[in-house]
Design a protein around this nucleic acid. Sequence first.
DNA 1: ACAGAACAAGACAGACCTGTCTTTTTTTTT
DNA 2: AAAAAAAAAGACAGGTCTGTCTTGTTCTGT
Lengths: 209, 209
Amino acid sequence: MDDSPQEFCHQQTSGWSFAATEPKTARDRIMTAASHLFCNHGFAATGIDTILSRAGTAKATLYHHFKSKEELIAAVLEAEGTTWRGWFFGRLAETQGPARTRMLAVFDVLEEWFADPGFYGCPFINAVAEFDTGNDAVRKAAEKHKEHILTWLKAQAIELKVPDVTETARSFAVLLDGAIVAAQHTRDPSFARTARNMAECHLDAVLGA
Amino acid sequence: MDDSPQEFCHQQTSGWSFAATEPKTARDRIMTAASHLFCNHGFAATGIDTILSRAGTAKATLYHHFKSKEELIAAVLEAEGTTWRGWFFGRLAETQGPARTRMLAVFDVLEEWFADPGFYGCPFINAVAEFDTGNDAVRKAAEKHKEHILTWLKAQAIELKVPDVTETARSFAVLLDGAIVAAQHTRDPSFARTARNMAECHLDAVLGA
DNA sequence: ACAGAACAAGACAGACCTGTCTTTTTTTTT
DNA sequence: AAAAAAAAAGACAGGTCTGTCTTGTTCTGT
């Protein structure tokens, strides 16, 4: 993995990563640097000094904008989630066709994400996995992120007139998480297609194809 | 979560956790203490001194048995994997009935695991999530663990005479990972049943029910 | 009983960590 | 242009981390 800042290394991602965002202010530089390092090396493993060095900012600047490392982590997670969902739902909005097509397109977009050389898994899954079992702050942030996704899925499921909207959304969520983890572990993007096949299978079953 | 050693707190798990194993030697005490702390608080977040304090051993003893923290982590992961698979496959072996029943029982056993108050997710998923993107040692350990599971799944799939054994095993693996992550995030064990329904759906589809 | 291994207890070194503070320079706002 | 905010640079404190080493005790196998 490349650790040079994107000013010098134009590794263009498709836009799912906040870390690849163009930073304007010093605060932005801190956020994108922290995002890159947290997501690639882990939260605990990344020290403040490493972030500062990458961002090219002074320590006082960081502690002027964030009162602690914990607050920086929370801000980075929030930004990563927002950027990712913007990209993800944007791609899905481009998809033409009925609700069923749009729902299944989820896994095509997923595969595109997996195939990116900079893919490091889902920051929320990684954060929940790393932090304490009792760390509710991080778990709640992850829950909020997934709630956004579930809301989208439910909207499509309603349009599709599936009998149990919640269960269909939950099923898709399991496939999402499973594909992400499998792809992260094996670096094989085709798990998205495996998940897609099961999603199709599920829709056929509940809609009585 | 309870941090008192199991000598004083008889929180009986079903046997999936190596950390709940009865330690005989000082080495055992170090391993079970480390396992509990690593899995509940994270690998980087757990210091050597914390492990020693919980194990009630001296520092020299730890470094006599393990040449570094990294080696201890590797040993703990290996032990966790072995114990978990022993429990998991043991439960499945108790299942009576045809291969299809046995395959679907995977998700019943999973739900039992999720429902345990001490459930902390899959140590391998958590380790891969926490460590560096480029940490191949941990990723390979996780791969080995999953290979064992895939082998079992493939054996059942062969007995079931599914058309594509590998794809069915991969599908189950995605459902496994997805259910684990969903249950870990929400603390809702019923995601095992959501996964089970999709597994049934997949088998029906490939076997032409 | 005796020799050697295993273990307890803890001091210690050197590195790294988070967070504070000071001083100087740059940028922005009024 | 003057005042105020933001940022750079880095010293510093206090804590924690891993890993080494010493000394003495307990256990174990022969």
